[in-house]
């Protein structure tokens, strides 16, 4: 009953499963994209972060350079505090970089887009992005449009 062939097949079986796991890790999931966890965390305050999720990407010039790690409410200033993790190759962002909540396409997922400024100082661990632009609420925009249209006709 028990033979070398049995062992061989069980070996092949286990190896196939390990190969499948490797494929799921590297090719299918974002384990390969996560890269090293090295990097730094910066915060930014927004008036409105509606639609933004934890783990949403942080992009610079459209390229993903980090992700959002937490979204909390500052209960004294009634603003949303977004913490984002930026990968270590991108540690030379100027201090006056601005952050805006943007949308992929018209109805796509929200992400944070960074726009570098011109300062000589760089952002570091724990520093805060001062100039931010909240997410654009389509409903508010349409509401304002109506106000403007009716106001203009008077």
């Amino acid at each position: 009953m028990y033979s070398k062939v049995t062992e061989l097949w069980v070996g092949i079986f286990v190896a196939a499963a390990v190969a499948a796991l490797f494929m799921l890790a590297m090719q299918v999931s974002n384990l390969s994209l996560a890269g090293s966890d090295e990097g730094y965390t910066v915060t930014a305050r927004f008036d409105d972060v509606a639609g933004l999720n934890v783990r949403a990407p942080v992009r610079l010039a459209g390229v993903r350079i980090g992700r959002i790690t937490s979204i909390e409410v500052d209960s004294t200033r009634f603003q949303a505090v977004v913490k984002m993790h930026i990968q270590s190759p991108y540690d030379n962002l100027p201090e006056d970089t601005t952050a805006a909540i943007l949308t992929e396409g018209l109805l796509g997922a929200k992400y944070i887009g960074l726009d570098p400024g011109g300062s000589l100082e760089n952002l570091g661990e724990g520093s805060e992005i001062i100039i931010t632009q909240s997410s654009i609420s389509l409903e508010k925009l349409i509401g304002q449009l109506f106000v403007n249209l009716t106001g203009g006709s008077d």
Partner: peptide, 15 residues
């Protein structure tokens, strides 16, 4: 095909 997959499948949460 692969790019969309990697963007949305998370190692810890999904796999």
């Amino acid at each position: 095909y692969w790019g969309q997959m990697q963007a949305y499948v998370d190692w810890g949460d999904d796999v």
